[in-house]
């Protein structure tokens, strides 16, 4: 049932390695998605300008513009479109940089095909799910910040921030589970739709991003509290 919703989703594949791109395109098309392939950073931005995509799959080492630059550019234009980095760069610095620039997921090459397709499916489903739930309760208040889930903005007296769709989903999960300790594994399973054994660093990076947006002092959080050995506790106050 859920699968039918995402059939025909449009994916922008940005990959300069021809052999890799052909294989990915085949597999994604076989899953029922519509794939457009950009061979370099310049083409990727041109494609993005002209089309609407449900997911962007980005390599990092690309001609003309790196994947990081493209992610930054796309995020400045649209906070909602999910971005997945698919790269041979495995260092934690690259991973953190990619996620901090607003990517929703980061997979390193070589990768397991089934896991890759699963992550793609989950990202597309989450995009749908997000647009459904945001209709029900489009606004929330945390401290002096007002979150508008419709246009993904956070407004306070002093500033206005745009959330990415993954940040919005994570925030919504915290709001719905306020006052309860949530483990990293639970967040991975329910927000990222991944096995809780995959890794926990990604969750921490996203929570630190939310702290930057909402906490008066991100080093001493009052809303997104860490519970040692357990996970996180969201205290709406």
């Amino acid at each position: 049932m859920e699968e039918n919703k995402i059939k025909g989703s449009k994916i922008l594949l940005v990959e300069d390695e021809e052999t890799m791109a052909i294989g990915l395109e085949y597999n994604l098309t076989d899953e029922g998605y519509v794939v457009e392939w950009a061979k370099n950073g310049r083409d990727a931005l041109n494609f993005y300008d002209k089309g609407r995509y449900d997911l962007i799959i980005l390599d990092i080492m690309l001609p003309y513009f790196s994947g990081f630059e493209i992610a930054k550019e796309i995020r400045s234009r649209s906070p909602k479109v999910p971005i997945l980095f698919l790269t041979a760069r495995t260092s934690s610095e690259d991973r953190v940089r990619g996620l901090e620039l607003g990517a929703d997921d980061y997979i390193t090459k070589p990768f397991d095909l089934r896991e890759f397709l699963l992550r793609v499916r989950r990202m597309l489903l989450r995009g749908r799910w997000y647009s459904d739930v945001s209709k029900d309760s489009p606004k929330a208040k945390i401290g002096d910040c007002v979150v508008d889930f419709d246009n993904l903005t956070v407004k306070s007296k002093s500033r206005s921030i745009t959330l990415t769709s993954r940040e919005a989903v994570l925030l919504r999960y915290f709001l719905e589970n306020s006052g309860r300790v949530i483990s990293r594994g639970e967040l991975l399973e329910n927000v990222w739709h991944l096995s809780s054994e995959v890794e926990t660093r990604t969750v921490d990076i996203f929570v630190s991003r939310l702290r930057k947006y909402f906490e008066p002092d991100p080093d001493s959080p009052i809303y997104f509290k860490s519970i040692r050995g357990e996970g996180y506790l969201f205290d709406k106050r």
Binding site: T19, G23, L24, N27, A88, D112
Partner: peptide, 16 residues
């Protein structure tokens, strides 16, 4: 990078 890229591609085709 030069080692991983073709290796990833070969693995992708084998799994496919």
């Amino acid at each position: 990078h030069e080692l991983k890229s073709p290796l990833a591609s070969i693995q992708l085709y084998l799994e496919t």
